[in-house]
């Protein structure tokens, strides 16, 4: 059984300075601290979650990734993590650019809307897909910018982000794939995790 957190933890270097964008209650940062001795920093919109994270001893700032990433100086972090938060942002592209400005690298994960079950759901029911990973109805969801693996790979190419590593997760199994040939992962992965660097 491999989770998104397992993959992210594997992609973060030991003792790295990590910014988790949309860190929630800080559970990923705590894990990175324990496993990687990472120096964790968090950004989170929800005040109650920030309070929870800070009360566990983490350095977390209440703020909005759409507007507040600009507050951090360039190269402030080794890795910026966007763990299933990208699709909830107003301007995901701007956030990715900012992530690669303030971090030497970025680890980005999202639920893959290209998964075969999502596709067949839409085909057979004619309604916006609702699943375990994406349980909210279309008018209630915070996920306003959902994408597929292929969408993301094409965006990265257009923006000049270098995909160093790419993984699909399907039923608890993680598989690496080549960003040049995303077709299979786009069909089978429920979630995708990418390690990005900006072109120097």
């Amino acid at each position: 059984m491999t989770t998104r957190y397992d993959l992210i933890a594997a992609l973060v270097e030991n003792e790295a300075r990590v910014l988790d964008v949309g860190c929630g209650d800080g559970s990923l940062l705590r894990r990175l601290g324990e496993e990687r001795r990472a120096r964790g920093y968090g950004l989170e919109l929800d005040a109650a979650l920030v309070a929870q994270a800070v009360s566990s001893g983490l350095s977390v700032v209440q703020g909005d990734a759409d507007t507040d990433l600009g507050d951090y100086p360039a190269g402030a972090f080794d890795t910026v993590v966007l763990s299933n938060s990208l699709q909830a942002l107003q301007s995901p592209v701007a956030a990715l650019r900012e992530a690669l400005r303030v971090g030497r690298g970025a680890v980005v994960s999202f639920p893959n809307f290209g998964h075969w079950r999502v596709r067949t759901d839409l085909l057979t029911s004619g309604r916006m897909p609702v699943s375990k990973a994406l349980p909210a109805k279309w008018h209630e969801t915070q996920n306003i910018h959902l994408c597929t693996v292929r969408d993301f790979v094409e965006l990265a190419r257009a923006e000049g982000f270098v995909i160093e590593k790419a993984f699909g997760i399907s039923s608890g199994r993680a598989r690496s794939f080549s960003p040049g040939r995303p077709g299979r992962a786009n069909l089978t992965a429920q979630e995708a995790v990418f390690l990005l660097r900006s072109k120097r």
Binding site: A47, A48, V50, S55, S59, Q62
Partner: peptide, 29 residues
């Protein structure tokens, strides 16, 4: 290393002197 929280309260500036569980939680942690 910085943490920041905006606590929801309708008690104005004086809130920092009053019973505010969210403040206690954050400051305590």
């Amino acid at each position: 290393e910085v943490s920041f929280v905006e606590v929801e309260s309708d008690r104005g500036h004086d809130a920092f002197l009053l019973e505010e569980p969210e403040l206690d939680r954050v400051l305590g942690g």
